[in-house]
Amino acid sequence: MNIVVLVKQVPDTGAERTLSQADHTLDREDADLVLDEINERAAEEALRLKETADAHITVVSMGPDSALDAIRKVLAMGGDRGIHVCDDRLHGADVLTTAKVLAAAVRTVTDVDLVLAGNATTDGQASAVPAVVADLLALPQLTQVRKLDVAEGRVRAERETENGEATLDAPLPALVSVTEKINEPRYPSFKGIMAAKKKPVDTVDLDDLFPDAAAFPVTRTRVVEAVPRPPRAAGTRIADDGSAGRQLAAYLIAQKLV
């Protein structure tokens, strides 16, 4: 079985994130970059499949030079090879271009059975890239999955959204995006980290993936204005002396919230 895992490097959410003054894109220079934590779970799911079936795992990431670290981390967890799409022209790419590039990278892998992704990234939060990749590759999308079974050429998955749960079924090849509830990812072992250094990673640019790379826009939207929101200030503060519930009620009534 050939599995492709899509992973993205994101700024650590514990740290402050800023937008570049010049072009309103994410300021990567000031941020701590990490492998998106839901992507670790997508990788973990691929590794669990590999434990039960003969599988080869290709890790694909689109991003600047530093994205190689995210690929290496998944290789250290047990992935087999990497494809790093790295091209300055992709700076500021929108969801559609990101998905186009990822789909093109997946097409370079032969006989793909399963594409695994996270359901959302913590920086973009578009929660849209996997669905678009499925559209472009004409694969059934089984997204927002918290339980996955792959057997006999079919995928069965439990999807969880605000509307409740649904059981999904589709033939392979298919695309699956997982939620943070699907598993607990393993830590790379020291041996894994050493082995990962020798695993092959192909670095490709737009011209390698598209004959007409210059022809498509990198983004189809434009930021007109970006304003930092003023931090919220602390309001009234009381210590409970036995009447805080009543004081709070009085406040809510005065604010016309009750």
Binding site: A234, D240, A244, L248
Partner: peptide, 26 residues
């Protein structure tokens, strides 16, 4: 507490039921 418009330093099991009662009464 640094960004709440109204904050109570206290035990939620004391404060919340009292608030519930006040709101329900109203």
């Amino acid at each position: 507490l640094d960004l709440a418009d109204y904050s109570v330093v206290g035990d939620l099991f004391e404060v919340a039921p009292q608030l519930t009662q006040e709101v329900a009464a109203r």
